Amino acid sequence: MPRPKLEVADIFRTHGPAYRRANVGHLNLAQLKAMSAIEACRTEALGGHVAACTKCNHQHIAYNSCKNRHCPKCQAPAARDWMAARAEDLLPVEYFHVVFTLPAEIARIALWNKRALYSLLFKASAQTVMTIAADPKRLGARVGLTSVLHTWGSALTHHPHIHMIVPGGGLSPDGTRWVACKPGFFLHVRVLSRLFRRLFLDGLMALHGAGHLRLFGDLVGLADAPAFAEWSAPLRKIDWVVYAKPPFGGPEAVLAYLSRYTHRVAISNHRLVSADADTVAFRWKDYRIKRGDRMKVMRLATDEFIRRFLIHVLPDRFHRIRHYGFLAGSGRKEKVARVRAVLGTAGSGEPDQPEDDLKEPLALREPCPDCGGPMRIIETFRRGEIPRSRAPPRLQAA
Results as ranks from 00 to 15, higher is better:
360 E>T: 11
152 W>A: 01
44 E>W: 01
42 R>V: 08
167 P>N: 08
209 G>C: 03
142 R>V: 13
144 G>Y: 07
183 P>T: 06
245 K>N: 13
392 P>F: 08
103 P>C: 08
121 L>Q: 04
72 P>K: 04
25 G>E: 03
26 H>E: 15
337 A>Q: 12
312 H>W: 06
259 S>M: 07
201 L>E: 07
11 I>C: 04
94 E>H: 12
337 A>F: 01
140 G>A: 07
312 H>Y: 05
115 R>A: 14
381 F>V: 03
47 G>W: 10
288 R>E: 14
334 E>C: 01
286 D>H: 07
38 I>K: 04
330 S>R: 15
29 L>P: 00
261 Y>N: 02
172 S>K: 07
212 H>S: 12
266 A>H: 01
237 K>G: 12
236 R>T: 14
234 P>S: 05
128 T>G: 12
284 W>K: 03
145 L>S: 08
319 H>W: 12
257 Y>R: 13
311 I>K: 10
230 E>W: 07
87 A>R: 15
295 M>Y: 11
308 R>W: 10
64 N>T: 09
385 E>R: 09
118 Y>P: 07
169 G>K: 07
264 R>Y: 02
50 V>D: 01
74 C>N: 06
246 P>H: 04
237 K>I: 03
87 A>V: 10
85 A>D: 04
48 G>V: 03
154 S>R: 14
101 T>Y: 00
310 L>N: 08
137 K>S: 15
236 R>L: 15
333 K>I: 15
253 A>H: 14
25 G>H: 04
34 A>N: 06
14 T>Y: 00
315 P>T: 06
73 K>H: 14
351 P>I: 06
335 K>P: 00
109 I>P: 01
63 Y>T: 00
29 L>V: 12
257 Y>H: 15
176 T>E: 12
27 L>G: 07
347 G>L: 09
39 E>V: 14
387 P>M: 05
167 P>L: 05
264 R>C: 03
166 V>P: 05
251 P>I: 04
337 A>S: 11
187 L>K: 11
133 A>V: 00
158 H>R: 07
98 V>Y: 07
112 W>H: 15
54 T>M: 11
58 H>D: 00
131 T>M: 11
339 V>R: 09
341 A>Y: 08
215 L>W: 12
252 E>W: 08
43 T>W: 02
377 I>K: 03
390 R>A: 15
120 L>F: 03
325 G>M: 10
92 P>S: 10
157 T>V: 01
361 P>Y: 08
284 W>L: 00
105 E>N: 02
352 D>Y: 12
264 R>T: 02
77 P>N: 02
253 A>Q: 13
75 Q>P: 04
71 C>S: 08
283 R>I: 10
120 L>G: 01
195 L>C: 05
283 R>Q: 13
244 A>R: 14
115 R>L: 11
165 I>T: 13
253 A>Y: 06
260 R>T: 10
269 N>V: 04
147 S>H: 13
30 A>D: 09
200 F>L: 09
362 L>P: 00
4 P>Q: 05
365 R>P: 09
321 I>Q: 05
18 A>Y: 02
218 D>C: 10
152 W>D: 02
56 C>N: 07
221 G>F: 10
120 L>Y: 03
250 G>P: 05
376 R>M: 10
177 R>W: 02
79 A>P: 00
52 A>L: 02
102 L>H: 00
176 T>H: 10
188 H>W: 09
158 H>D: 13
89 D>R: 03
